[in-house]
């Protein structure tokens, strides 16, 4: 098993104000799969993603990625792990405003010992004509493509996407999802995507539905629907 989440617990606050966000979450994801974490606001899906990504810590339970246990790692090792194995995409694109599209993607490439071919990736991202533009000259979709490029270029084992289409319109969202699919197929990276959009479950290999910090439903799609065929 490539990713194993075992009995994960997490709470915020202290004393009477304690809120349990994750209540014993366990699941597994195979290498190269697209896993969609579905849930409403406050269900704990982003917290779960952050713990998997090593930017937040669990109170209990464990995460194993390719036989490496995150719990046993020091902060420095986790940072190195993120550097070598993980790519992050957020709803807000968080691009560096005074770097061009190409340079923003280079920021990701710098972290990798074996980055993807930059020019080829920019073409895959559909940003070739925009590669020398600054982020403020781009549309939301183009900015998110750049953010995806920055995460993908370092050739990560897992791509963690937190509401990657949350700030985009319908058509642009579909373009971005198609891009993620293409990346998954082309570069064989595992994608874990947090979304509240129920329609996206169809494009996943594995779907995990969360509510109140617990898994309410977990299943495998025998056949993935192409993102271009999704509708919502």
């Amino acid at each position: 098993m490539f990713l194993k989440v075992d009995n994960l617990e997490k709470s915020y606050g202290t004393g009477d104000n304690i809120v349990k966000v994750l209540k014993g979450i366990s699941f597994e994801v195979e290498k190269g799969q697209i896993c969609v974490l579905l849930g409403a606001s406050g269900s704990g899906k982003s917290t779960l993603l952050n713990i998997i990504g090593g930017i937040d810590t669990a109170d209990a339970g464990s995460i194993t990625i390719d036989n490496d246990k995150l719990q046993n790692m020091s902060e420095k090792e986790i940072s190195l792990y993120r550097r070598n194995h993980l790519g992050y995409i957020f709803q807000a694109y968080n691009l560096i405003p005074n770097l061009t599209v190409k340079e923003n993607i280079e920021v990701g490439a710098y972290l990798s010992k074996s980055p993807l071919d930059l020019e080829e990736l920019i073409k895959v991202l559909g940003l070739w004509e925009h590669k020398d533009k600054m982020p403020n000259q781009l549309s939301g979709g183009q900015q998110q493509r750049t953010a995806i490029g920055r995460a993908v270029v370092k050739n990560p084992d897992i791509l963690l996407c937190d509401e990657p289409t949350g700030a985009l319109d319908y058509n642009t969202s579909k373009d971005i999802l198609a891009l993620l699919e293409e990346i998954n197929e082309k570069y064989k990276c595992t994608i874990i995507m947090v979304t509240h959009n129920d329609a996206l479950k169809l494009m996943a290999d594995k779907v995990i539905k969360l509510r109140d910090g617990q898994i309410r439903k977990e299943y495998i799609n025998e056949v993935r629907t192409k993102s271009k065929d999704l509708d919502w």
């Binding site: 790519g87 807000a92 560096i96 405003p97 920021v107």
Partner: peptide
């Protein structure tokens, strides 16, 4: 001002 960018870079593996 660049808090989110720093967060993203740190999450991507840039060290402190």
């Amino acid at each position: 001002k660049e808090s989110a960018v720093i967060g993203t870079l740190r999450a991507s593996g840039y060290t402190r």
